[in-house]
C-alpha cells in the first residue's frame, strides 16, 4: 500500500529534474520569470500598496499613541504595551482566546474533513446533503443567528432537551463561566462549511487511479486514507489549518452577538472583541492598535511554526521553488 505514496512521491522527484538543465537558457528564463511573476501578482501588489499598506502603517503608529479618534493622536511611547501587562481584563481575553482557538479549530477542521469525506461521493441525493451541511455556514453572524443560537443553548433549548433525554442535569450554558465559551466553540464547529467545501474541492482533485492502485495492493479504507487521501490532501489541509488558525485568533462577531460582550465574567471575551470594546466603546484606539499588533506577532509566530512544520507533512505535486 505504500506503493501509492511512492508513486506520488516519485512524481514530484521527476518534476524536480528538468529544473537543473542548461544554465544559459535558464538565466534568460529567470529574467522573464521575474517579470512575469510581478506581472501576475501585480493585482495584489497594487492593492497592497494602494489600499492596505497605509492603514497598516497608520495602525502601527497609533499603537504608540493615545488616540481617541476625535483629537490628534498623542505620542505615548510604549505606554499602551505596558498597560496591557497590568490589565486583568486583557489577560482574561488572552485566556479566552487561547481556549477558543485550541478547542474550536481542531473540532471545526476534524468535523469539516469527516463530513467532506462523507459527502465526497456520487450517490444520489448527495447534493442535497451538501446543501444541508453547508447551510449553517451561510447564516453567518446576523442578529438572527444570535437569537437562534441562544435559543439552542437556552435553559429550555435543544441542547438541554437532549441532555435531559440521557438523564443529564440541565446546564445554564450561557450563564455558567465554565460552559459559556463552549457555545462559541460549538458554533464555530457548526459553521464548518467553508473548510468543508475546501476539503471537498481538494478531495475531488485526487486522481482516482491512486485509489485503484492501492486497491490492487489490497489496501483497506483506513490504509487508503492515511496513505493516499491525507498526503494528497495535505496542501489543502495545510491551507485550512493556517487560515482557520488565523481566523480563530481574530474571531469577533459571534462573541459580540451571542455571548453579549464577553459574558459571563469575561470568559468569552475574545481578544478582538476586547480590542473592539477598548477602541470603540472606550475610545482608546491607540490601546486597541497596540493589542492588535501584539496579536499579529503571536499569530505570525504560530503561522511560522505551522509553515516550518509543513515541510515534514505537506506534500506538493509540484515542489516549491522550481
Amino acid at each position: 500500500m505504500n506503493n501509492s505514496v511512492e508513486l506520488a512521491r516519485s512524481r514530484s522527484r521527476r518534476a524536480a529534474q528538468p529544473a537543473a538543465r542548461r544554465r544559459v537558457a535558464l538565466s534568460r528564463r529567470e529574467l522573464s520569470n521575474h517579470l512575469s511573476g510581478y506581472l501576475f501578482i501585480s493585482p495584489w501588489l497594487i492593492g497592497f500598496f494602494v489600499f492596505t499598506l497605509i492603514p497598516i502603517l497608520a495602525s502601527f503608529y497609533l499603537a504608540f499613541t493615545r488616540y481617541d479618534t476625535m483629537s490628534a493622536p498623542v505620542w505615548s511611547g510604549t505606554e499602551n504595551f505596558e498597560k496591557m501587562i497590568e490589565d486583568t481584563r486583557y489577560w482574561s481575553s488572552v485566556r479566552a482566546t487561547l481556549y477558543y482557538v485550541m478547542a474550536a479549530i481542531p473540532l471545526r477542521l476534524i468535523f469539516a474533513l469527516a463530513v467532506a469525506m462523507l459527502l465526497n461521493s456520487d450517490r444520489r441525493g448527495v447534493g442535497i446533503y451538501r446543501a444541508m451541511f453547508y447551510a449553517p455556514s451561510i447564516v453567518g453572524g446576523s442578529v438572527a443567528v444570535a437569537v437562534m443560537w441562544r435559543q439552542v443553548f437556552g435553559t429550555e433549548g435543544l441542547v438541554n432537551f437532549f441532555l435531559a433525554l440521557v438523564g443529564a442535569p440541565r446546564v445554564v450554558w450561557l450563564g455558567d463561566p465554565a460552559t459559556a465559551i463552549w457555545t462559541l466553540i460549538i458554533l464555530a464547529a457548526w459553521q464548518f462549511g467553508s473548510p468543508m467545501l475546501i476539503f471537498l474541492a481538494g478531495l475531488r482533485q485526487i486522481p482516482a487511479q491512486l485509489y485503484e492502485a492501492a486497491a490492487i495492493d489490497g489496501a483497506g479504507r483506513v490504509a487508503k486514507f492515511f496513505s493516499i487521501t491525507l498526503p494528497m490532501l495535505s496542501p489543502v489541509v495545510f491551507f485550512n489549518l493556517v487560515m482557520q488558525t488565523i481566523n480563530g485568533f481574530i474571531a469577533f462577531t459571534q462573541a459580540l452577538i451571542v455571548t453579549d460582550n464577553g459574558r459571563p465574567l469575561d470568559t468569552t471575551l475574545l481578544y478582538v472583541l476586547y480590542i473592539y470594546q477598548r477602541a470603540f466603546q472606550n475610545l482608546q484606539m491607540g490601546y486597541g492598535a497596540a493589542m492588535a499588533w501584539v496579536l499579529l506577532g503571536v499569530i505570525a509566530f504560530v503561522t511560522w511554526l505551522l509553515f516550518k512544520s509543513s515541510s515534514r507533512w505537506v506534500f506538493y505535486e509540484s515542489k516549491e521553488g522550481e
Partner: peptide, 10 residues
C-alpha cells in the same frame, strides 16, 4: 441567579 439572567437576557 445572575447566570440564569445572562442566559435568558436578550
Amino acid at each position: 441567579m445572575r447566570a440564569e439572567e445572562i442566559a435568558a437576557k436578550w
